[in-house]
Design a protein around this nucleic acid. Structure first.
Lengths: 155, 155
DNA sequence: TATTGTTATACTCTATAACTATA
DNA sequence: TATAGTTATAGAGTATAACAATA
């Protein structure tokens, strides 16, 4: 019987060990995404925000009067799962929730002054925290990256 | 009192509605990743594999004799959460799990013939499914994209 | 003492169904 | 009938602590 390598593979370079997976763009995407997500999570922690709630707050800041349903669409999550997030943002007085006059089923969400201020600070914190992992990317690289990513999204 | 736009924002272009978030590379990364992850999930469904278990199988195929702990490191997940995945792969006879002679605490994981065959079919299915979302990317674009992503990972 | 694999457990995220109030 | 917001619930995915076997 042939002797096969069965014992510890020992020290392989990082680039070799997951070579099978590196062929897939999605794998490379995920690894890079994890880095930026972790960095953002840490940066937001000081402001008592998670990436999800920061995203929700951002979209409300950028789209005053947006409804929870529209927000759920943008965030690609279920309406039902958005409820707690919106609840929390409202209870912290970061957003207001008022019924729409033309369609009383819907709510109009708006960031309060407090919400806009926190959003600005949190966004700045992420930009600052992003500097490290994005250090090797020039402004041109970043534009190029976003452009390539958008092509994937367009399908 | 000033009248403010409170009613439905109506039809905004997709590019405008999340403009606040598009400034963050991480957001663009996530959106593109979601597309490829969904496509891969669908492609793997026919082979009764999830992205996680396919990744584990791939890494075992590519690194015969790897231990569960090493696998957990590569997959960036806890050892404890890997147990069920390895259990399932073994119970489906896709991998074998044998104690190492030099260190009897550890297991050597190897793909079976059946496992290698399924892996090849599943990988081909993902490559096929990836064609659509990657249609707009030339071979050069893809290399460039992977290169930019690796820079983010390097920090 | 430290490490590997394992179990149990909890917490987050996500998905589905059903309800209410409005349309 | 259909839609918006909500509730309840179940399923993934993930993180932590503790244990037995082994080093």
């Amino acid at each position: 019987m042939m002797k096969e390598a069965e014992e510890p593979i020992g020290e392989l370079f990082d680039g070799d060990i997951d070579a099978v997976m590196r062929k897939f763009i999605g794998y490379n995407l995920k690894r890079a995404y994890i880095v930026l997500h972790q960095v953002a999570t840490q940066a937001l922690d000081a402001h008592d925000l998670r990436v999800r709630s920061f995203s929700a707050l951002s979209l409300i800041v950028g789209n005053p009067g947006v409804s929870p349903s529209e927000l759920a669409d943008m965030l690609q999550m279920e309406r039902s799962n958005l409820v707690l997030i919106v609840d929390e943002l409202e209870s912290r007085d970061l957003i207001s929730r008022t019924r729409m006059k033309l369609d009383r089923r819907r709510y109009a969400l708006k960031a309060t002054l407090r919400g806009r201020r926190l959003h600005e600070k949190a966004a700045a914190a992420i930009r600052r925290a992003d500097e490290r992992p994005l250090l090797r990317l020039t402004a041109e690289d970043r534009a190029q990256l976003v452009n390539l990513l958008s092509k994937i999204e367009m399908g």
